[in-house]
């Protein structure tokens, strides 16, 4: 019985250690994925604990009509939630996008938040995004609280609601800011596929 207990303790402690090492590993990778370059070429790290209440990342491509059509709404959300300590970033999830094109596009659409490039799709993979415009809400510690559409204005390609009925990103943020669990933490995005390269591998 004692031997069994010892074995049990060894197994539990051992696996705990392994788990911790893995967790640290994961965290290091996560942190690495959270450092991107902005359109002016400067490195940008997603804010962490003590720096914000939540982080919203919105993945874009410069030529997705649905992502572009959301620009005014993204700007509105950014303005509204800035006052509540939320940091918004828009991230071009494009492997082959030049910084000049990205910069010009960001200026034309007038994004008023950090505009980042993710040519290696590391932040894309980290949060598991597959489409643009896909939004992700992260806690200051980096936990993924929500991933999905901004709202339900697109029903399908070429089919747009006249009246938005479900403000999914706003709902997720309101829940996160009041410390409540997000009611629908994952929603489906109608938009353009992120190009994962000729092999098409997601992760």
């Amino acid at each position: 019985m004692r031997r069994f207990l010892r074995l049990l303790i060894t197994v539990v402690v051992g696996s705990g250690l392994v788990w911790q090492i893995h967790a640290q590993d994961d965290q290091a990778k996560t942190r690495d994925a959270e450092v991107l370059t902005d359109v002016s070429g400067k490195p940008y790290r997603l804010p962490g604990p003590g720096e914000c209440q939540a982080v919203v990342v919105i993945f874009l491509s410069h030529d997705c009509p649905i992502a572009n059509a959301y620009a005014p709404e993204i700007k509105r959300l950014c303005q509204v939630y800035k006052q509540r300590g939320v940091v918004f970033c828009v991230v071009y999830a494009e492997r082959d996008l030049s910084r000049e094109t990205a910069k010009k596009h960001a200026q034309e659409y007038g994004y008023c938040c950090p505009v980042l490039l993710d040519p290696e799709l590391k932040l894309v993979r980290r949060v598991g995004a597959t489409k643009v415009p896909e939004a992700a809400v992260l806690s200051p510690r980096g936990d993924l609280l929500y991933r999905g559409r901004i709202d339900d204005r697109y029903v399908d390609y070429g089919q747009r609601r006249s009246v938005v009925r479900s403000q999914d990103l706003r709902d997720a943020l309101d829940a996160a800011l009041s410390g409540k669990p997000v009611a629908r933490p994952r929603t489906e995005v109608i938009g353009c596929d992120i190009d994962f390269g000729p092999t098409g591998q997601h992760r």
Partner: peptide, 9 residues
Amino acid sequence: ADNPRNPNH
């Protein structure tokens, strides 16, 4: 309400 293009909801 099934009609997504309905201007009223």
